[in-house]
Design a protein around this nucleic acid. Structure first.
Lengths: 131, 131, 131, 131
DNA sequence: GTGGTCTAGACCACT
DNA sequence: GTGGTCTAGACCACG
């Protein structure tokens, strides 16, 4: 069953995003071999060319590398993965902050709210509204 | 031009989400009249019944109220809107935290990262990678 | 626009019920002239024969009487109307009690509940739930 | 055989009313499984969507709950059912009182009449008119 | 015109 | 099979 994609951002970027998350989260380990382009494309429900482009771009960024005939592997460079992790975090953080500001929250407030949700003084254990 | 929707969450919930954001952000002012169900539905590219359901649900939550034949209005209750704002913030915060944790960040780290992005040491342009 | 009727009880009985209520409530005064059968039938959206039957039955009960050519009149006998009033009350009371018992209330409880709703110690002024 | 409905009140409300009475009266026991939406709809002679709406509303009120694929069940919360019972009683009582007042009875009289019908002097058969 | 309700028929995920 | 959602199209009362 094909994955879910947004229509307003290039498909190959969304594919990269997903693959990168899998690397960062450890779903695929450093140095691990990736499935073939065809397989990945089939799984995602996209054209192999599109998947190929995503992987090429990741190769350019040295997140994966291809071994001639032996397939494609995730980088074993832990430092590189760490940088990727922070990069993805940055994207996510900026999106979050923008979303919160569109809700009319000032940066200072946001920090305070997060502190309540995470560590600091826990509220009452169920700040969950119906949402 | 129809809006963008995810397929994995009910349409009427997504419609509610968007409308609620418009209320919270002040894009539609408290007490202001909303476009008719049919107009909103056409704008969103959904069936009027679906939009009706979204609005009915919001009515139940006292975010809007309908005036028999005169149309539908945003609540004028500022306190109610404030509560909605915090509710939406909560949803967004939890989604953010979950996303970060899937990236392998501990709650403490997240706070630190945010501090860098917002207050504390202002971004100097080097913090931004291409992303 | 025709009145509302239940399908499971004879039409003429329902017509009688309505007419009798109008007499008892004073909507039509004792001794007052009634509209013609045709008019009444048209108003109710029923066949004139059906309305005729209702009126004949009421005539038999001496609630109305017809003046040869001059039309039909409500009885001027106050005592008769008083009896009718109690009769209608009886129907209503029995229906009420039956309904309450189908809800599982014992006769004693019902009296207590009514006392709260009417006189006695008024509850808090708004025992109204959403209903 | 389709049920009987009034035309002047929404069908889904009448469906709720009937289902709620069945719960309160114990015709369906707490925790018991309900027939499927489609069955109930067929029995009532309404569109499945309409029945669905009635049940959804009852679900919102926590009178029933649905088990993904396993069907829908009456709440096992006896207290909730007790509240429903009183709510339905309240509706019925208010309707009764209004009906009696339209007949021109003062609240005090009504209490007296009920006392005769229920406790106090038991009906001797003469209190019953043909009605 | 407005909101509200109803029907008919379809598709989905779940199991 | 279940509940849940969505669309399409219709009708209504209210002003």
């Amino acid at each position: 069953m094909p994955w879910e994609f947004r229509k307003d951002v290039p498909l190959y970027l969304q594919l990269m995003e997903r693959l990168q998350r899998q690397i960062v989260s450890g779903a695929v380990a450093p140095g691990e071999r990736l499935p073939s382009v065809r397989e990945l494309a089939a799984e995602a429900g996209v054209n192999p060319n599109t998947m190929q482009r995503a992987l090429s771009e990741m190769e350019r960024r040295e997140l994966v590398f291809s071994q001639r005939t032996a397939g494609r592997y995730v980088t074993a460079d832990g430092e590189r993965i760490r940088r990727l992790r922070e990069e993805l975090a940055g994207v996510q953080i900026r999106a979050f902050l923008e979303g919160m500001e569109r809700l009319g929250f000032r940066p200072e407030e946001i920090g305070e709210l997060l502190r309540r949700q995470t560590g600091g003084t826990p509220p009452d254990g169920k700040g969950e509204r119906e949402a």
